[in-house]
Amino acid sequence: MNGWEFQPARDRDLHGIERHRSLKREHGLGESITRLIWWAGLRVIFRVWNRLRVTGRENLPASPPFILIANHTSHLDAPLLASLLPAKWRDQISPVAASDTFFENRPTAAFAAWFLNALAIRRRGTGAHDLEQMRDRLNDDNAVFIIFPEGTRSRTGKLQSFKSGIGRMVAESKVPVVPCRLEGCFRAWPADGSFVKPTRLSIKIGKPVTFENCPDTRAGWNTVAGRLHDCLENLAD
């Protein structure tokens, strides 16, 4: 008879903010229930308050893992994308969030980890190791990542150039990347805004793209970033 295989939580030896920040973080029943309620609640609020309109839903892949990328103009973007996904995946969604904004102090980090399931990434000095870990997590946990390749919220509402980190995550991999164009978030809640205005929001989901044939090199990463940038440009009408 074979022995049972036990897999203790990967983050058992971490606590407090260290644990929130860790890419090894794993959650339990409490977080799952919280997020189920949280995302469903936000979905209703977006529908009612912002008259959310989604087009191209049929372009979503049949099952995780996949990555959603979008233009970034507001803190609304990640919740908006997360709440449009079907309830059965809600537990697997992880927005990739800047560690200097979301994981600096304990309450914010706890919120980002508990409610949003956000993963911390450093804006400066992200090592190859971090991205490697993220790539593993994407595949091992069947995750849905929400990534804003611009790296920060656009202060003008215009699409900015993409960082190449997204390339490191998907080059030579089968994981599809789904480009999403968000409209209205900049007017509803810009970076310097204090509350969410009842502006109409709309999401346009584009066709998934894979980069199996893109080499996992610096040039390859730049190609990925460039192609995804074009995809988002083309989605704007």
Binding site: F6, Q7, P8, A9, R12, E26, L29, D91
Partner: peptide, 21 residues
Amino acid sequence: FREFARATGIFREKLIGLAAV
């Protein structure tokens, strides 16, 4: 139960956790 679940890995089975709770 949470400590036991995290140490054995049973915490990944959310429904089992729900039943236990």
